[in-house]
Nucleic acid binder design. Structure first.
Length: 578
RNA sequence: GACUCAGUAGCUCAGCUGGUAGAGCAUCUCCCUUUUAAGGAGAGGGUCCAGGGUUCGAGCCCCUGCUGAGUCACCA
């Protein structure tokens, strides 16, 4: 219904009206031409104060603070690059007798958060701060909601920061405006994507786009989102991976293809999982997973340097991650041997289960060999790999799309890159034997029949593609959100997604004037009855005599320009109260 | 899904053993022509997340629910 407005919001609406009464359009259409941006301007001026260009400067941005001292004022203007201080002198911006622009427009009707354009010259204050002296002021856009005011002192201590995660994520626009560093986090995320893209393009690999709506969600073990296509009258799934489509493109003759892919998984949410997330997958023909390990290493070093001023060491929490080459490489078998003393090689399911029990790892009957080994690794080894480490040669049961190891068919030619005890990237020598692939899919089908709702579907078209022949190929996928977390030192995925998934916001339904009018209150009194009683329920509880007296008292107190109420009148307002 | 914590002014937070709802910033009025977490004087601003219960009396205690965060479990 109607929106409850706080005192400050009402005041800003008053200012909006006052601006219009002064003939100022608070939302003008015209372009405002700027000559500079705040941060580079400060730098350039510090280098060469005498330069003529600083005599005529035009900037646009939001007012972030106002410090009024009678006939002179200071304000901070924030644009996309940073903040610069403004100096406004009444008699400079209002040379004639009419001081309204300063006294009324700037001092009274412009608030923190409003967009303005300013023209003037740059100088240094007595305190040494580089400042724009304003000669012309243009209102560009009025802000009706007060921004949180975050302050910072000389030592960089932040006061009254806007910290509530719920509000920060729901109103990311506010977070971006007032919290220093948030925009930089997302700029860095984009630099990561750009650096990675640049690296792949150097090799001549092709960036492609494949379907997000898929009839069969393949390429990973995960629960998909399901939707429905009306014209085809069939279910469609949101993709959980793009692997199978990219491999079809390798069949089609491209040597290297990659895609930055939004994937969707209908699973739990926590600090490291959002229902939609971004993965980069790349497939390169005639390569194997050894080549891909080298390639991944080089690519990451390139990306890390690009976003980290050329350094390969990245702080993360209380740790430091070093992307300096080469990354440690260890097979899963050796990793488990190293951390548990148990050798998984050639062990039966029963032996593995017994080992799990000895190691204190819970198991259940649905777990096959692959799953048991995965549990041991996840429990005992994974957290130890803080520095970038390639774990290689996973058991065949865990990797239905991966080629068997050239030396031991119980294993696959697969690696995962572990950083900070978590998986960051996953890569294979891709399985291109269509007969073996069909058999592996059938294994998955059996798992599915056992009740595993994440087992892979059989994609007949993909198998057909393989039957036409896929060259030996290596593929790699890397979690972009998790990489962004690592490189921006954030422990939560929500910090690197502009709009993380949240439960819908529930707004309490507030009563409006109209609700009171429905009760029979005339339009000229309804807003006052709303103000006096708040809710229809409260109003309905009262007797007509009480309402009569209270509203006449309200009329007097607020000096309403309305005739005093008669009791008979009030009795008609609400048939239930007499 | 389990457990723990949190929700009070626009923002950040206090609120004692259950006894009239508080501070800083922001806002409003007045003073102030190079200030800077500007300053000085004054003022206004509240559905204490919601709904029940206990009580003479609930922001506080109990129950239920909502939202978020954290830990664990599940899950790539």
């Amino acid at each position: 219904m109607s929106e409850h407005l706080s005192e400050q919001e009402l005041q800003r609406r008053e200012s909006l009206k006052a601006l219009r009464d002064l003939g100022i359009d608070p939302y003008p259409a015209a372009e405002f031409e700027t000559t500079h941006h705040a941060a580079p301007l400060l730098e350039a001026f510090a280098d060469d104060e005498a330069n003529q260009e600083f005599k005529a400067v035009s900037l646009a941005g939001r007012i972030m603070t106002k410090r009024i001292m009678g006939k002179a004022s200071f304000a901070d203007l924030m644009d996309s690059t940073g903040r610069i201080q403004l100096y406004l002198n009444r008699d400079e911006i209002c040379p004639g007798d009419d001081k309204a622009l300063y006294n009324d427009v700037f001092k009274k009707h412009l608030d923190i958060g409003d967009f303005i354009g300013v023209k003037g010259f740059i100088f240094r204050t007595r305190m040494g701060e580089i400042t724009l002296q304003v000669q012309e002021l243009t209102v560009l856009s009025k802000s009706l909601k007060p921004l949180p005011v975050v302050k910072k002192d000389e030592e960089g201590n932040v006061y009254d920061a806007f910290t509530d995660p719920e509000q920060r994520y729901r109103m990311r626009y506010v977070d971006l405006v007032v919290n220093e560093g948030v925009r930089e986090t997302f700029a860095k995320r984009t630099r990561i994507l750009n650096a990675m893209r640049e690296f792949f393009n150097q090799y001549g690999y092709l960036e492609v786009e494949t379907p997000i709506l898929q009839p069969i969600p393949g390429g990973a073990a995960a629960r998909p989102f399901i939707t429905h296509h009306n014209a085809l009258n069939m279910p469609l799934y949101l993709r959980i991976a793009n692997e199978l489509y990219l491999k079809r493109l390798i069949v089609g003759g491209y040597e290297g293809v990659y895609e930055f892919s939004k994937d969707f998984r209908n699973e739990g949410m926590d600090r490291t999982h959002n229902p939609e997330f971004t993965v980069m997958e790349i497939y390169v023909a005639y390569k194997d997973y050894f080549w891909m390990m080298d390639f991944t290493e080089k690519m990451l070093v390139h990306v890390v340097k690009a976003v980290n001023n050329g350094a390969t060491k990245v702080p993360f929490g209380d740790k430091e991650i070093d992307f300096g080459q080469p990354f440690k490489r260890i097979s899963m078998r050796d990793a488990i041997l190293e951390h548990t003393g148990f050798d998984i090689d050639a062990k039966s399911e029963a032996e593995l289960k017994a080992a799990c029990q000895e190691l204190g790892i819970e198991t259940d009957d649905t777990m096959g060999k692959g799953k048991l080994i995965d549990e041991i690794f996840g429990e005992k080894c994974e957290p130890n790999y803080v520095q970038p480490t390639f774990i290689t040669d996973y058991p065949v049961e865990m990797s239905p799309l991966c080629k068997r190891h050239r030396e031991n068919p119980d294993y696959t030619e697969r690696f995962e890159l572990m950083i900070n005890g978590k998986e960051l990237a996953n890569a294979y020598s891709e399985l291109n034997d269509p007969i073996d692939q069909r058999a592996r899919f059938e294994e998955q089908l059996k798992l599915s029949e056992k009740g595993d709702d994440e087992a892979m579907f059989i994609d007949q078209d993909f198998l057909r593609a393989l039957e036409y022949g896929m060259p030996p190929t290596s593929g790699m996928g890397i979690g972009i959100d998790r990489l962004a977390m690592l490189l921006t030192n954030n422990a939560s995925i929500q910090e690197v997604l502009f709009f993380p998934q949240m439960r819908p916001e529930k707004k309490p339904q507030l009563p409006s004037k109209a609700d009171f009018e429905k009760q029979g209150v005339p339009a000229n009194w309804s807003e006052h009855v709303l103000a006096a009683y708040g809710t229809v329920e409260e109003f309905k509880k009262q007797k007509a005599t009480q309402v009569h007296q209270k509203m006449n008292g309200y009329r007097k107190k607020n000096k309403l320009d309305l005739p005093a109420l008669q009791l008979e009148e009030v009795q008609t307002w609400n048939s239930e109260n007499n």
